[in-house]
Every structure is written in structure tokens, then in C-alpha cells.
């Protein structure tokens, strides 16, 4: 009798909500040379054997989808699908989502902001999309003079970079470009798909919280770049190489169930 009541309750819940959901956390782990990234003091070697250190790393993750083996997709509602990951703020590296119960074989997301959102009216640009955000801290992710979001920002220094007029050897990669408002320009929106291993499919069950680790190898950014030339890249054709690079830098890092 008891189980029957429970069953009918579950059926009512199912009717009410379609299906039950559970919490899934995406945990972004920034790594260099296989270890946790250390800002400023850590020095690492690029694939071209140039020593680098990194002082700032932040990027947008948006338009997240969970994909089942049969191709069915769950798309995180647009209104709650924009996240700004900042290396210096631990809480920002944890994205907490509600996902319907099921077994998923892949997770996909954009690094950056889709073109439609890039042209939204200002009244809809709130939270991490507020173009006035973080300007005081010089951590703004918005270009004012060429309206658009900066998708990915990484800064640091390397002795391989020629000294500027003030003697500093710094790199600044500010990557954006959503394809243009009405005349085509650079498009640096990249979709990353994390395939989960067959044995490690993501099992979302209402009584458990899953924490999926996504590793980002920050040194991937420097692949096929010549630091002597490419130390300040923003909205120029060379920026697409960086976007291609970081899109390959995201890897599956295991799942924990709590």
C-alpha cells in the first residue's frame, strides 16, 4: 500500500514536472604541465619551450547542453546559461546546474557569448553580461569602442617576448568577435564538446549530486604561436588561432557522485 502511494506520488510529480531533476556541478580545473595552475609565481614551458607565467585568466562559458547516447539533448535554459569563470575567484569555477535524470554521454558548451546575446538590448544584459561590470578592477570582459564581449582573457609575461618601451615583456590575449552586427567580422565563438568515456557516462539521479571535472590546460593557448610576434592579440585575424587553441584545451577530468 505504502509503495503504491509513493508510486502514485512519483507519477503526479512526473506529470507536474515532466521528470525529476538533480544537481550537476561543472568544476573547471585550470592546469599547466599536469598540475594546478598557480598565477604569477608559477613558471611553465610552452610547446615551443618558451617559459611563461600567467597573471590573469578568465573566460565565458555559455549555452551548455547535456547529450544522451541516442542524441537527445537537454539545453540549460538560456536565462541561466551564462557564466564567467575567473581563475582568481574559486567560486566562479563551479557551475551549479539542474539537469533532468538520465544517462548522458557528452557535455557541450560555448567558450564565449553567442551572437544573438552579443546584440541584446542593454536592459537584458544583467549579471555577468552587464557591460559595465568589473571595469573598476580592470577585469572587464567588454569592448566599448567596438561593442562586443571579450570571450577569453589571459595575460602574463615571458622572457621570450621582446621588451616594450617600458621594459616589460608581457602578453595580453583578449579574444572576442561574434561575427559582426550586420557586416561579417571575425567569429571567435567556439563550441567545445566533452565526450564522456563509455564507462564513465554521467548518471543524473535525483538523490545524488554529480560533480563533473573539466580540465583546462592553459598552455594549449600558446600552441603554434610565436611569442616574439604574438604577444598582444585582440580583434585581429591572428586571434582565431588562440580561439582554436583554447577550444582544444578542455578535457574531461572525471566525475564524483556525492
Amino acid at each position: 500500500m505504502k509503495s503504491l502511494t509513493f508510486l502514485s506520488l512519483q507519477i503526479i510529480m512526473l506529470l507536474l514536472y515532466g521528470s525529476t531533476t538533480a544537481q550537476v556541478t561543472l568544476q573547471f580545473d585550470h592546469r599547466a604541465e599536469g598540475k594546478k595552475l598557480v598565477l604569477n609565481t608559477g613558471t611553465y614551458k610552452t610547446s615551443a619551450n618558451d617559459p611563461v607565467s600567467i597573471s590573469l585568466l578568465q573566460y565565458y562559458i555559455s549555452n551548455i547542453q547535456f547529450i544522451k547516447g541516442n542524441g537527445d539533448k537537454y539545453t540549460v535554459p538560456k536565462a541561466s546559461s551564462f557564466f564567467l569563470i575567473k581563475e582568481n575567484i574559486d567560486s566562479s569555477k563551479t557551475i551549479v546546474l539542474k539537469v533532468p535524470d538520465g544517462v548522458y554521454s557528452a557535455i557541450t558548451f560555448l567558450v564565449g557569448i553567442d551572437s544573438l546575446t552579443s546584440t541584446l538590448g542593454i536592459e537584458e544584459r544583467t549579471g555577468v553580461l552587464d557591460p559595465g561590470k568589473d571595469m573598476a578592477a580592470s577585469e572587464s570582459m567588454y569592448w566599448t569602442w567596438n561593442s562586443g564581449y571579450i570571450f577569453f582573457k589571459m595575460e602574463g609575461s615571458s622572457p621570450a617576448i621582446p621588451a616594450d618601451k617600458t621594459g616589460f615583456r608581457e602578453f595580453e590575449y583578449h579574444i572576442g568577435g561574434y561575427g559582426g552586427y550586420n557586416s561579417p567580422t571575425i567569429n571567435n565563438i567556439r563550441r567545445v564538446t566533452i565526450e564522456l568515456p563509455a564507462a564513465g557516462a554521467l548518471r543524473v539521479r535525483s538523490n545524488k549530486t554529480a560533480v563533473v571535472h573539466i580540465r583546462f590546460d592553459v598552455l594549449s593557448v600558446f600552441d603554434r604561436l610565436d611569442l616574439k610576434q604574438h604577444h598582444h592579440l585582440m580583434l585581429t585575424p591572428a586571434s582565431t588561432q588562440i580561439a582554436d587553441n583554447y577550444a582544444t584545451g578542455f578535457q574531461y577530468g572525471g566525475t564524483q557522485y556525492q
Binding site: 557591460p131 566599448t144 569602442w145 561593442s147
Partner: peptide, 20 residues
């Protein structure tokens, strides 16, 4: 807006001179 048309929406225009 602007001599180079870098801003397409009047609502986003004032951010340019304020932050320059």
C-alpha cells in the same frame, strides 16, 4: 556611432567616452 561605426546601439555608446 563613432567615426568608425564601432558601436551599433545608442544604448551602448555612452560607455565609450566614459571609459576612455
Amino acid at each position: 556611432f563613432m567615426w568608425d561605426g564601432g558601436v551599433k546601439d545608442l544604448d551602448l555608446q555612452p560607455i565609450v567616452p566614459i571609459t576612455n
